[in-house]
Design a binder for these strands. Structure first.
Length: 495
RNA sequence: GGCGACAUGGCCGAGGGGUUAGGCAGAGGUCUGCAAAACCUCGUACGGCGGUUCGAAUCCGCCUGUCGCCUCCA
């Protein structure tokens, strides 16, 4: 595949990607509702779309990536009488709703930074775009798609014939699915709220043409995507579970208001399970990302580094479900370690007399994987498969003559696009690092001396004790190599 | 109950009508004081039952199972 194909959830087909404006891509991904720490599900979704954006940029597109922060309007249930999630959490934590929003927004961004997810270009907040939301609701009322009753405004689902086209749901089905008591002032039970009247105890409320109130859940995405990306956007992403009702309602709002197609390519990532089960607070298996990073949960036996989680996620396709288990993570960790060894070997090698590597074929193959609806799992497989021979050449002392060029191309793909490049070791100060190396080298000298006296007890003790603090020693004919947390250094001694 | 996905070797996970995914784990070997690392070799798997076909794990049907949506969720 020499062109990018994207699986469009709307048409259920892989389609050649062609943006509305050549060279430019507008992408909107549903961001988190910030009332709690981010969890594995967020990681899967945002790592997946991170690669989408990175790859589009690699292909030369100028991308504008918008991801909202929902900090109002998301109710605890859809009975239209539910409580705002932010307000509820603010009561529990005894904080202002905006303190809750800020706290968890930063928790979210911190976790994403650690997962090496690039920040969106714009991260608009729902509370910062109340005027845009009101304006859009007014337009919907004007066009006869929405109506006001007693300070509430609802979208009239029957006025929009395309409702259900994304989720494949007919109006009758939607109606049959409504199990909860509906608010008495709706025309049809499946109509959804655009604006809600706030009672006096409500903290987050704004003045509107319909009185004091707050926006519904779906309207913020429509208003903000229109504001920053225009009326028709190229890609809209999000989790599969948001297809209905959230994305369906976004389509209705935007297309009813603008009378233009809303989204050219809908992308939905699949779900995450934990030990085969859906994560849920009621099941007691909801583990947050900070808990993974710190190993701070009953179900976890240890810490799991962010780069391992990212690699694990990218080893499966974004449209497949991903089951997390510590066994699977451990396997991913070993695999990533090996991949990093290969990357480092290529990155550090000097061009030699070995036969040149076929770089264009390699790059084309990786691109073919990614062009096929962002198949990161196959791309990673290609790295292992094709780079093995290069590593062997390097080990044998005959690096390919074009190993420098390969390192450059590899960095573009593995670092810029997939974000899997190893971190630099020794993040402490330069001075500390130098002292550390000298201390290790001193120990290696002592060990070498012990070995020459055949005092293997001492030699092994040094090796074992260093291994305990993640400094590993490898003896080779050319000299001894040591690794601090995976990053290798060569130290030559004459025995 | 309605709608929709998926079922791949010990584990994870791509692919997809006839020819190797890949990773992890495991076995043997080279090397080594031992070890580690590296390298070499080794697994012929696709839920069950029917059907289409010269040929199906890959297409169709049924069954079983798992998961998701239909209520908040990435």
């Amino acid at each position: 595949m020499d062109q990018l194909y994207i699986y469009n959830t709307l048409t259920k087909e892989k389609e050649i990607f062609e943006p509305l404006k050549p060279g430019f891509v507008s992408i909107y991904v549903c961001g988190p509702t910030v009332y709690g720490d981010p969890h594995l599900g967020h990681a899967k979704s945002y790592v997946a779309f991170d690669v989408v954006v990175r790859y589009l940029r690699y292909l030369g597109y100028k991308v504008r990536y918008v991801q909202n922060i929902t900090d109002v309007g998301h109710l605890t249930d859809d009975a239209d009488e539910g409580e705002d999630k932010l307000e509820k959490q603010s009561r529990i934590e005894r904080l202002e709703p905006m303190e809750v929003a800020d706290k968890y927004m930063w928790s979210y961004f911190d976790a994403m930074d650690r997962l090496n997810v690039k920040r969106p270009d714009i991260a608009p907040r729902a509370t910062g775009h109340i005027p845009e939301q009101i304006e859009m609701i007014e337009a919907l009322i004007e066009r006869g798609h929405a109506y006001e009753t007693e300070g509430n405004v609802y979208f009239d689902i029957r006025s929009f014939e395309g409702y259900g086209k994304l989720s494949g749901r007919s109006l009758e089905e939607a109606e049959a699915g409504v199990r909860v008591e509906t608010a008495g002032d709706k025309r049809n039970p499946e109509d959804f709220a655009l604006w809600k009247k706030a009672d006096p105890s409500h903290i987050m409320k704004w003045r509107s043409p319909w009185g004091m109130g707050y926006p519904g859940w779906h309207i913020e995405c429509s208003a903000m995507s229109t504001r920053y990306l225009g009326q028709t956007i190229d890609i809209h992403g999000g989790g599969l579970e948001n297809q209905f009702p959230h994305h369906e309602s976004e389509i209705a709002q935007c297309e009813a208001a603008h009378e233009k197609p809303f989204v050219r390519y809908w992308m939905h990532n699949n779900m995450v399970t934990l030990n085969g089960q859906k994560m849920g607070k009621s099941l007691g298996n909801a583990i947050s990302l900070p808990q993974f990073f710190e190993g701070d949960h009953q179900l976890l036996s240890r810490k799991w580094p962010a780069d391992v989680i990212r690699f694990f996620l990218l080893q499966s396709h974004y449209r497949s479900t991903t089951d997390f288990s510590e066994e699977a993570l451990a396997a991913a960790e070993s695999g990533l370690k090996n991949l990093h060894e290969i990357f480092r070997a290529i990155d550090e090698a000097e061009p030699g007399s070995g036969s040149p590597f076929d770089i264009p074929a390699f790059v084309d193959e990786v691109k073919a994987c990614l062009n096929d609806d962002f198949n990161t799992a196959r791309a990673i497989g290609t790295f292992f498969e094709q780079l093995r021979s290069v590593r062997k050449q390097i080990n044998d002392g005959n690096p390919p003559s074009n190993v420098d060029e390969l390192a450059g191309e590899l960095k573009m793909l593995a670092d810029e696009v997939l974000g899997l490049w190893p971190d630099e070791a020794g993040s402490g100060g330069e001075e500390d690092r130098r002292r550390l190396h000298q201390a290790i080298e001193l120990l290696l000298e002592i060990r070498q001396k012990a070995r020459s006296h055949r005092d293997f007890e001492t030699a092994d003790r040094i090796r074992d004790r260093l291994a305990e603090v993640d400094i590993t020693i490898e003896d080779a004919p050319q000299g001894t190599t040591y690794k601090i947390g995976g990053k290798s250094f060569t130290f030559t001694l004459t025995p």
